[in-house]
Design a protein around this nucleic acid. Structure first.
Length: 111
DNA sequence: GTTATGACTATGG
DNA sequence: GCCATAGCCATAA
C-alpha cells in the first residue's frame, strides 16, 4: 500500500508525462489531461492538473497546456507567445493576448 | 469540521 | 469581448 504522498507523486508524474507527450505546435487543455488521467484510473480534475503545473510545470513544455478556450493565465502570455511563434502553433491573432486556435492545435493523446 | 484558495470549466448577462 | 456565478476537487490553515 502506497502512502498518500507517494500517490500524489505518481499523479504528478502522470500529469508531467502527458504534458511532455504533446508535440511542438500542438496543445492540450487542463481538462483534457484530467480526462486522460481518469482513463488511467486517476481521480482529480482540471484544478488538480493546474495545481501540478503551478508547482512542477517548469520541468515540462508548460506552454502546450492551455485552458479550454485556448488562453493561459495573464502572467504567462509573454513567454508562451514566443514559444508559439517559434513552434508555429496556430493562433487566432498575432497580437496580445495570445490565444491558441484550439480547432487547429488540439492534441488528443492516445488512451 | 469549516473556510479559503487555485495555471479549471460551463453557462448566462 | 468581458464579468459574475455556480460546480468542481485537492490542499492548507
Amino acid at each position: 500500500m502506497e502512502s498518500a504522498e507517494e500517490l500524489r507523486e505518481a499523479y504528478t508524474e502522470r500529469v508531467l508525462q502527458v504534458a511532455e507527450s504533446v508535440p511542438p505546435g500542438r496543445v492540450i487543455s487542463y481538462g483534457g489531461i484530467a480526462d486522460v488521467l481518469a482513463a488511467h484510473g486517476y481521480g482529480g480534475g482540471p484544478r488538480q492538473v493546474g495545481r501540478v503545473m503551478a508547482t512542477e510545470g517548469g520541468a515540462v513544455p508548460w506552454w502546450r497546456v492551455v485552458r479550454a478556450d485556448g488562453t493561459l493565465p495573464g502572467h504567462l502570455h509573454g513567454r508562451a507567445r514566443q514559444h508559439y511563434l517559434t513552434e508555429g502553433t496556430p493562433l487566432h491573432r498575432l497580437d496580445a493576448p495570445t490565444r491558441v486556435d484550439i480547432a487547429r492545435a488540439w492534441w488528443q493523446p492516445e488512451v
